[in-house]
Structures are given as structure tokens and as C-alpha cells.
Design a binder for these strands. Structure first.
Lengths: 236, 236
DNA sequence: TCATGCATGATTGTATACGATTTTCTGCAC
DNA sequence: GTGCAGAAAATCGTATACAATCATGCATGA
């Protein structure tokens, strides 16, 4: 049987052209290899990926639609530097939509979906134990995947896409303003939410979700971080 | 005092380049001058607006991000032809987010905002009385503006943008599947919602909003309509 | 010394050119 | 007349070229 969450597994491996560049830069942003404010020159991006400025520009344009990159006319593209107010709006949006997504997902969830969620939870826990930058980045990604998987299970492609944008921008905000080690408490909360869903305690699950988002937001602090540089971030 | 709804008034008049083309095509789609399935060739769009394919392509790309245009690799761009399932997802998304937006808006609403909403209501009623294509199109637009204004009042730019996308796509769906004359009952419902907000009956306002959306959706005939697609009509 | 203006370089904005893919047309065989 | 193969046309994908705009630094003068 085909799980509803299978929508997450896209064939990203064989894609080419602008989408590939877009995804590569997005990953770099979400995983903090590129810091907010970093300039993304069209020429540099094109040279890095061995394509023309045309494709580089298309990729940057796409990322600007997702709110991860801000393009300023005649000045260039920069990794988005969300203001504290933007950060609040992002989390307000998540508080607004995630309970609803949770309810939809709970109504359609299958045993294999629950299995998938628990798998993610284990992975998350494993990464939490490790040290270092890479583990930290993977942890951010895993934490986001929990929410994205719920959106996928909900079966609404539109809400799923919206959540992808919100989660990505959240990562950017956490990278900018997060003070403690990301969502260390989030892991346990994810487990609680799954548990509540499994036992059909919908109201409690929504309540937990709202608290979870509030906890992430409460961990934010307004502090500036400096950039890495485009080349270093992509050196293989 | 500056109303929260002032975010709606953007300087669309002086914009140039791809954004102008994008907005022009979007208006044409939302106002039903362009029918779903219509091919939007890059060359044709470029010639129409006296720009190169580069800008035409950028505009079409932007519209594809909004879900109003679907681009098929090596085949071209077409006005989106939302499937019945997509239509349901769009309205499911609206049911999911609009009550939350309504609550946010109610918490921040000012007397001048209420004035603005009532103004929209009057305009809507005026258009309802008229006959003809143009009045019908304007009515769709005015009906959408009510929801967009609420989103603007909520003060969350992210939700506002999302609502803009949902409303635009809703217009597309209504154009495709709507059977009666749009939201003739919607006008009264808009008034009821404003009234409920004004008297601080939040729960009732949300309830009305959900019913309102359900009514619009109930007016849809989610079966196939042969209004367009010359080829499909004769070749299938 | 500091402010101002201009020249120069770098970067983006837009258009055009060329190659790849798809679609359509044509013509021949059956 | 039907069906298929190959050519021709149209359209998209990508790269490159040129124009416009912005940033930088130096010269100049108060």
C-alpha cells in the first residue's frame, strides 16, 4: 500500500537546470552553509554551477518567490535576512495553519504513515546525540521533516507547498536568531504529538503542536551572525 | 491614522518589466478573459507586450509559482486548468486558513478598516445589480477583495500573500466549474461576517466564514466542462 | 582635511542567437 | 484510403551579447 507521505520523496537526483541550482542553494541556505545577507551574484552562481547567468538568475528568482532570497533591483540577490517582525509572522502563520494540517492529517493517517513518522523521530534522536556542525544541520532538517511529513499526510498539496516554504524560512530564522541548540526540546514534543495522534486525542495533539511552535519561537533571540562566503559553502 | 488595510494599495501603476506582464496576465486570468487551458506562448506574450522572450518567460514562470499557469517542459505554458481535486484542495486550504486570518484580523481591526470593508460591500452590491460580462468579472474581483482585505488587516504579510494566491486560484476554479452566477448569496454573507466582527462575536464570524466558503464550493459543479480546449473538444 | 563630481569598473536588465525537443506536414508504400 | 517514416516548422532551453544602472575611487577645490 502506498503511503500518503510518499509525496515527500521526489526524484531530486536526476533533475537538471535551474531547479537543481535552486534546490542546491536552498539546501545551502536551510543548512546554514550560506548565511543571511550573503550576496548571491548571478555570475558567481553561474560559474559555481557551470551554467550561464540565465539559469542562475532563474534559480535566484525562484528562491525569491519562496522568501529565501531577496532580489533588489539593479543591486543583486542576497540570502534573505528576515527581520524580527518577519520572523514573528512566519511563526504566526505556522501557528495558524499547523493545527488545521494536523487535524486533516490525523483524519487520513495510516499505520504506515505513523511508522514513517516514528522513523523520523528516531533519526532525529540519533542526530541529537551527535556533535558538530553537520549533525546540527541535519537536526534542523530532520526537525523540519516532521512537520513536512504531517503536511504530506494531510493530502493537500497546496498546504504542503506552503508548509515547505514556512519550514524553510523557519530554518533561516532559527539560524539567525536561535540561541540554544535548536529544537532540543522539540524532539520530545514531536514524540508527544505522534502519541496524541495515535491515540486519537486530536485536541491534545493540536494543543501540543501549538506549544511546540511557541517553544521554538521562544528560543529565538535577536542577534547577528556573520556570513561564510559563497565559495566555501559549496567547496566539495 | 494609517489603516492596516493600506497594504493593499501597491503602486502597480509605474511598475515595468516582467512584473507588469505578470500582473496583466494574472488579471486577464482572474477576470476570465483568458480561459483555462489557453496556450501562452513565450513569443506571443513577448510580442503582445513588446518585450523579448526573456521577460515573457520570467512572467510566465512567476505565474506558474502562483499556480495560475502550468508550464510543461519543452511544450510551453498554459493557463492552469485545475482538476476537480485541485479545486477541492484550494477550498480546503481556504477553510483551513480563513478562520484563523479572521481571528487575527478581528484582533487588530480599526474603525477605518471596518469602513473600508463596508465600502467594498457596497461596491459589490452595486455590481451585483448590473448585467453583462464586465459586471460579472468585477463582481468576482470584488468578492475576492473582501477576503484579501481581511488578510491585509490581519497584518501578516505571509498569510496575505498566501490568500492572494488562494483567491486567484479560486477565481479560476469558479470560472471553470461555477454554475450559478458566482457568489450571489456570498454578498449577504460578507455583510453578516462584517457584522459579526463588528459586534465582537468572533466564533460566530468564523462559523459564518466557514459556511460562506462551503457555499461557494457547493455552487461548483465538479464535473467536466467543455467550455474550452478546441483540440480536446474535437480530438478526444 | 573633507566634500563633491566625474571617470571607471562591476553588476544587473534585456535582447538576440543558437541548439534541442516537440509537433506538424508531406510523401511514399501498402 | 490508411499508416508510417522522414523532413520541415514551430517552440522551448540555454548561452552569449549589449545596454543600463549602480558602486568605487581618485582628482579637484573649498
Amino acid at each position: 500500500m502506498k503511503s500518503a507521505a510518499s509525496g515527500l520523496s521526489q526524484d531530486d537526483s536526476q533533475e537538471t537546470g535551474a531547479p537543481q541550482i535552486r534546490d542546491a542553494i536552498r539546501d545551502a541556505i536551510v543548512e546554514r552553509r550560506l548565511s543571511p545577507g550573503t550576496k548571491l551574484s548571478e555570475s558567481d552562481v553561474g560559474n559555481l554551477f557551470n551554467v550561464s547567468r540565465t539559469l542562475a538568475r532563474a534559480a535566484l528568482q525562484a528562491l525569491s518567490y519562496e522568501g529565501l532570497v531577496s532580489v533588489e533591483k539593479n543591486r543583486g540577490a542576497f540570502v534573505a535576512y528576515p527581520s524580527p517582525d518577519e520572523a514573528r509572522q512566519i511563526f504566526a502563520a505556522r501557528r495558524l495553519v499547523e493545527p488545521g494540517i494536523l487535524r486533516e492529517a490525523a483524519a487520513r493517517i495510516t499505520p504506515s504513515d505513523i511508522q514513517h513518522l516514528k522513523q523520523l523521530l528516531l533519526e532525529e534522536g540519533r542526530l541529537m546525540g551527535e556533535r558538530g556542525q553537520t549533525a546540527r544541520r541535519a537536526e534542523i532538517k530532520a526537525s523540519g521533516d516532521f512537520h513536512l511529513t504531517l503536511a504530506a499526510i494531510s493530502g493537500n498539496a497546496i498546504m504542503q507547498r506552503f508548509m515547505e516554504e514556512l519550514v524553510a524560512r523557519s530554518s533561516l530564522v532559527i539560524a539567525l536568531y536561535g540561541q540554544s541548540t535548536v529544537s532540543s526540546c522539540g524532539h520530545a514534543e514531536h514524540g508527544d504529538i505522534i502519541e496524541a495522534i495515535e491515540s486519537r486525542e486530536l485536541d491534545r495533539a493540536c494543543h501540543l503542536m501549538l506549544h511546540h511552535i511557541a517553544h521554538i519561537e521562544a528560543d529565538l533571540d535577536l542577534r547577528e551572525r556573520k556570513s561564510l562566503g559563497l565559495k566555501e559553502a559549496f567547496e566539495l
